[in-house]
Design a protein around this nucleic acid. Sequence first.
DNA 1: GGCGTCGCCGCCCCTACGGATGATCTTCGA
DNA 2: TCGAAGATCATCCGTAGGGGCGGCGACGCC
Lengths: 211, 211
Amino acid sequence: MDELNLLLVDDHPVVRAGLKAVLTEQAGLRVVAEAADGAAAIAQLNRLETLGEHVDVVLMDLQMDGMDGVEATGRIRSAGGPPVLILTTYDSDSDIRTALDAGAAGYLLKDAPLARLTAAVRDAARGRRVLSEEVAARMDPAARNAATDLSPRELELLGLLSRGLVNRQIARELFISESTVKTHLIHIYSKLGVDTRTAAIDQARTLRLIR
Amino acid sequence: MDELNLLLVDDHPVVRAGLKAVLTEQAGLRVVAEAADGAAAIAQLNRLETLGEHVDVVLMDLQMDGMDGVEATGRIRSAGGPPVLILTTYDSDSDIRTALDAGAAGYLLKDAPLARLTAAVRDAARGRRVLSEEVAARMDPAARNAATDLSPRELELLGLLSRGLVNRQIARELFISESTVKTHLIHIYSKLGVDTRTAAIDQARTLRLIR
DNA sequence: GGCGTCGCCGCCCCTACGGATGATCTTCGA
DNA sequence: TCGAAGATCATCCGTAGGGGCGGCGACGCC
């Protein structure tokens, strides 16, 4: 099989058209369908299956109206669908983790060079995991900056923080005491080098720990 | 003159390629140069000028590494350059305002349909102001939701809030007393329907008052 | 001229928050 | 098996933040 069949999922018509133009000009890639959100992507996969069309790789954006990329990825994977390659603008730690946990075959940034993109598509089609350099470096435990290495629990707290919850609400949400919430916050502050919750949110955002 | 000459400015190669593919397929549009950030865009304009090449419209992303779109727009406009059409993913009030203040000829979202994009390019080339529907509605004073209509000063406070400053720092930054900061915050909270600073930041973000 | 909005300032009060410190339990790897 | 790291909880303390007042000058609009 020489030609790989792709499904593009992105809510920006311009980006879809661009990907299509770029990828079809590269030998061996064929865009067989497009979708503007996760639900449409799944519908397209079902439609193509009934037509006997094969899809080798799904190129999926994360941020979309309607069903987002993470959920769609999870559903496609659990249904035994084709490998899903995430192609997105953002590279927050939590995004990457949830996407990979959902079964994504890879995670690329939209500012990746075209050669890398096409190579990633081919790798994903062969069942290999592909991460862009920055993402791989981010996920490599050895290369992590110790100062910004928050525990999963602390990242969870950070998420609730950024949603504007007060300590009491965070405590209830996580079924822990308010004291524990405060302890976690102190740890987060010291790791991020700040001393207030709003500064922690800001810092976490610039470090791309959260979105 | 039938063919319009465009300069594309976007730090995503994929998006640039997509725009180029889409726009050149539309009759009358020609992409004469591309740039990955604001500084490169200005350099390209200078280069094209010495070559005697004319640029009718600059299509500019806002979020870029290096010189961002707002600053680049300001410089291009103040140098008597071609009209600049902003094409971006985000539509926060503050982004729109600063871009238009910097002299942008229009503001479009990347999820705009292609027909609208090409129409906007032609309008911009003719010196007309173009805003996407959502943006225009947002900027229309009559259509504003009174509950979320913050004064300019309050938006300014909100920006400092989101950067994690404490009241004392905000006061110093704005040369006002801490009491006044508190008063502004109270007003912001009541307009946003929240009662803590973090919740205000979150709400302002979801309402796209800030980024 | 009066009314509303905006920006500015002060007081009081109470709570939430942040800092310091110390402690228990689990898990995991050296 | 011992220690490090994570998650949990607690108490004490001081301050920053938020709520409720009231007030003042400037500006624009009817």
